[in-house]
Nucleic acid binder design. Sequence first.
DNA 1: AATCGCCATGAAAACGTTTACGTTCCGCGC
DNA 2: GCGCGGAACGTAAACGTTTTCATGGCGATT
Lengths: 349, 349
Amino acid sequence: MTTKNATIKDVAREAKVSVASVSRVLNGTGGVTPQTQKVVREVAARLHYVPDSAARSLITGRTHTIGAVLPDLYGEFFSELIRGIDLAARARGLHLLVSSSHDGVDDAAAAVRAMRGRVDGMLIFSEYVDAAFLDANLPAALPAVLLNSAVKSARYPVLTIDNRGGASAMVQHLIESGRKRVAFIAGSKTNFDAQQRDKGYRAAMAKFAPDLPLNIVPGDFSEESGYRAGVELLAQKKRPDAVFAANDMMAVGCLMAFKQAGVQVPQEIALAGFDDILIARYVSPSLSTVQVRIADLGRAALERLAALLDPDANTPAPAQTLGCDIVVRETSGGSTGAASTRRPRRPPK
Amino acid sequence: MTTKNATIKDVAREAKVSVASVSRVLNGTGGVTPQTQKVVREVAARLHYVPDSAARSLITGRTHTIGAVLPDLYGEFFSELIRGIDLAARARGLHLLVSSSHDGVDDAAAAVRAMRGRVDGMLIFSEYVDAAFLDANLPAALPAVLLNSAVKSARYPVLTIDNRGGASAMVQHLIESGRKRVAFIAGSKTNFDAQQRDKGYRAAMAKFAPDLPLNIVPGDFSEESGYRAGVELLAQKKRPDAVFAANDMMAVGCLMAFKQAGVQVPQEIALAGFDDILIARYVSPSLSTVQVRIADLGRAALERLAALLDPDANTPAPAQTLGCDIVVRETSGGSTGAASTRRPRRPPK
DNA sequence: AATCGCCATGAAAACGTTTACGTTCCGCGC
DNA sequence: GCGCGGAACGTAAACGTTTTCATGGCGATT
């Protein structure tokens, strides 16, 4: 074994054929005698020949790599998302170039631009993207799929979680289990998910409890903001008998506030969150929540992109909106200690 | 804007210079008149010229990309690790090609081989790697850094968490706070971290409680195995007054067993885990544990690799072993409800 | 028996860079 | 006034593939 890697020429020389034949054999393009194929394969294996991907990319214009631009996501979400993407990518023989943790438009723009020419397509998950951003930073010809974005673009497919339906279903569940005064702890104003969940709450209230007033207190997805919201809710003249937080961390914070005030959950006030993070199962009482299958979102996004990459392959385009499941645990359950129930929901349309 | 991307030739033509000059200007190699530079830069900007990375890689032999091969890691760990790596990589202008979620030697081998030629160096985190694996799958010339591996290799640097020291310090803490009979719930036999934590337990017991017997029950890092271990420990004739689990999930499972049996924590039995996962803070009583700074591990690994990549740059090689901190919470604390205390520890050597 | 056409194969161009080497030009020292 | 050196710049080779096109051989059809 020398220090230099074997090239296609070395293989051709050893196998006493031309480089063209070697290329044909290794790529499965037809037109080569079985016995020639055999010889070439043997020599290639003997020399540990691996095609140089740079040279190949140079001429084919394809990198077999897709880029994922992600924000500095919350841990569990992030890892599940990458996991789903990676799994689907590997199944298709695609490589995954990631760039995570940016806050700020410029940061995100730099990340997108840096991937130019290195990837065949992109998965973009960022609250900073809009139509202008994409026009400015994406090469016109580069396929891309947007995740959880408010952008409505004809050029780029957008995949979202059914935040609205999930939130709506949770409110419905709370009302149907006898709660009347359902309050909502909102998430960050600028966050797309937060906005959708807010809409879901409003829609469900309008539909299932049209004569009851809305009760929305602000939050920012942090545990602290949930705690503050809990305190605020307890101070209200007519306390709610159910609280729905726009994410689990706020629900946990709210729960702490209730515990500290000696308020019984779920006897006096029911509580529910959104995301089904791992903690939800372990706080006591355990937290009812809306489960989002994040890995599925990643997988679906990659498959959508793959469909864009080669339109020939009749890859069916997966659904644009991913459903959420309601997970009923102790904080909204009838009987404490009951096993959690999951209620599958299908996305609309 | 045409459909085709501008090449260096286009820039050269427009700027009325040769491609060589364009290359020189854009790469900062000297030998070009300031005014020529100005013209070239202007034209390049106007045409939105971006050098083709494939062509560049082909001739320079460098990709400015590093590959990370990771196992199907536990969520929080995984995301923190990638985050650390990504941050450090971006600071150095390196791209990050990830391949996660594999179980099995063949799977890992395929992942490593698939990156051949696409990366300048590799970060490998897999319990399947050993010297033979590396010889078989890694090109001889490719720099690589191993994470949390038992491999002792002269060719590849290995970075580890100070599992042993962390475990030892936790046992010391338990003993110093008055516990006598400290039991240990072990992790998977084949796992490197588990082995090291086991050694730490034994070492600390030998040092701080030499006349007390060891008490080790098996586990496999899962919550269920922690629960079973808890039940087993309660059934012992002489119950331990402290239990140290090799990771947090098992500690949580054990805590559930204790709660269910009506055993008071920490009054009757103290409890501690390892990892400081998010849940540790939220179970009640909150869990004392050993915190590992995973993002730092990722960062250090990348910096080590970067140092290998260009030995000229006097990048100081970071420490081989990353320290852990002891986090004292309620399950091992004196007073319930006290704020958590963190005790920084420096790694040995 | 001659021609046609197909099939396996080879030669060479092309992809977009970097870089070694040549060339030109200018200023300076003799 | 001549040569010399160095700076600025251009030419062309090289990187390792894929792919188009040409070529030769051979069997089948007339």
